[in-house]
Design a protein around this nucleic acid. Structure first.
Lengths: 306, 306
DNA sequence: CACAATTGTGCAAAAATATTGCATGATCGA
DNA sequence: TCGATCATGCAATATTTTTGCACAATTGTG
């Protein structure tokens, strides 16, 4: 309902290059270029200008975007009120996106339950990197994002989104099956201070998360190996090459000689899972319902996994 | 920037019939019909329904319009901020509309002065009935309306418009040149209580205005004749058939044997002239400037005419 | 320092949308 | 009952948007 070209400009600022916008929005670069020009023409002032081989938003474009954020938000709200009216067909399509673990653990039961309650709704799951999740929200290719709080995300105050805590995913210590801590029903993170550690790649969000958790427990983990996937990490641990921290939500394949040891501490080492939506869209019945179901599912999963 | 179809719906509510909307907006009825249908389809619920041979807005449509009024307002404000930025071409077209007297007296000097200050601006004057003026604002075919307060206007609280008092147009008593009051420098309205009165047609805004003024002076005017145009009224008065009340702003052709007698009283009999703009548009430099110039011109005219 | 990769633009052609013209059905008022 | 008014539907048409290249500018790499 808000001019499509404003939306394009918004995504441009998010993604940086016109080509990327075209890719994401399913247009050709020419089309995006033309839209921006046409917007500039209508406003009587350029909204972007060429800088090097890229585009840079002008002061006017920035002002336009800042001010029109409210338009986007209000429209989502109106959309919700309209749907809430009950008359006619409410939105029936819902697209959930989340990082891999969420997409595997939280999202399928949510989709299933929603499909039961609203047989005519079509729930889609999109697996995407946490950063990309917000791009997807903005590009209106997803309606709800489930992400890990530690990632480089838009700040909570970003007016384009509403973020809220979903639940806290506790971290377990993953040790070889014959490790001295393997049979313990719980351990403190500091007990593993002297171990060789298997971490994610330096600079990655999970790497930072683990280092932060260790720092809180009073030590710096000695990095022995790097792994990106839980499975690789488990294999390394299984081979006796070190220990690792693994979120409880992450399921491991069978057949590794490893033990998960729950951690205690205050606060308990954990990663925070958030939901994100476009500002204003919380009023749309299907989205509101989905957020509730997500919370239910999260609570159940958390209970089951303890 | 706000969806064109929302605008069409808005004008439909104002004008009542689809055909009228088409006429006003310069479309064919088919096009308007199609737009409304397409809007309904996108929202998943009908915004209008057929009732008799006309269209009636649905509950959903009403809600939509109420809520989206803020979108229209905000957009006008943003538009103004953008223009105020100075970069690029600001709005250069300005359309003033007003009822006949205003269009003849106030608007031309305003247009002239604006054209001097902003040589690249194109100022257009549209003469229209006061009621129609607001339709023109809504249909974005005029930017500023100058109307008489007494007419059946949208209430001051109508969120679609911002109205503000421009000035007070004093009413003079028009009497034959040989009338006992003709040479008086001022008179009280009650002194004409026993005269035969020349009024506008019953039910017309000006008829009501005059009756109200007389009522405030403590009498009911005895209606002798009816005239719609000032010129006709002056001719009747000139012929000795009665007296009339005429706004000072209204210029009369030469050659009538009549005298204008200023009225005193508390309050002085007068009609209030208002300006109206679309909500939010006050921030647009050209509109703001035009409102100022209008006030200047009004003040000068008022001073000159006293 | 040349070269390959990447980025945005421009323009004619193609595709998608919006609009018209006219025929039709429904309703209202005389 | 008839004529006037109103909205709709559909095929034809006009308009707008999008694509498909070819091209120019910039970056950074080997």
């Amino acid at each position: 309902m808000i001019d499509q070209r404003l939306h394009v400009l918004r995504v441009l600022v998010e993604l940086g290059t016109l080509t990327e916008v075209a890719r994401r929005l399913g247009y050709t670069p020419s089309a995006v270029s033309h839209q921006l020009r046409s917007l500039s023409k209508d406003l009587g002032m350029p909204v972007v200008e060429q800088r090097g081989r890229g585009l840079v938003i002008t002061r006017a474009g920035q002002l336009l975007l800042e001010r029109s954020q409210e338009l986007f938000t209000r429209w989502e709200e109106i959309r919700g009120e309209l749907d809430g009216l009950g008359t006619g067909t409410r939105r029936r399509q819902l697209r959930l996106c989340g990082f891999s673990t969420a997409a595997a653990t939280l999202l399928p039961p949510t989709a299933q339950r929603l499909a039961q309650r609203y047989p005519d709704s079509r729930v889609t799951i999109i697996e995407a990197e946490p950063e990309e999740c917000f791009d997807l929200l903005l590009a209106e290719q997803a309606d709800i994002a489930v992400v890990v709080a530690t990632d480089p995300l838009p700040p909570r105050s970003d007016a384009r989104f509403e973020q809220s805590a979903l639940f806290s995913d506790r971290l377990d210590l993953l040790v070889p099956a014959d490790h001295r801590l393997a049979t313990r029903s719980a351990a403190s993170l500091s007990e593993a201070a002297e171990e060789a550690w298997i971490l994610d790649r330096p600079g990655s969000p999970y790497h930072r998360l683990v280092r932060t958790a260790c720092a809180a427990a009073g030590f710096l983990p000695e990095k022995a190996h790097q792994s990106r996937e839980w499975e690789t990490g488990a294999a390394l641990v299984s081979a006796g090459l070190g220990v690792a921290l693994i979120p409880r939500l992450a399921r491991l394949p069978e057949g590794f000689d490893v033990a998960r040891v729950p951690l205690r501490g205050d606060p308990v080492p954990s990663r925070k899972i958030l939901t994100g939506i476009r500002s204003g869209s919380a009023g749309q019945p299907l989205i509101a319902e989905a957020l509730e179901v997500l919370a239910e599912v999260s609570a159940e999963v958390a209970r089951r996994e303890i």
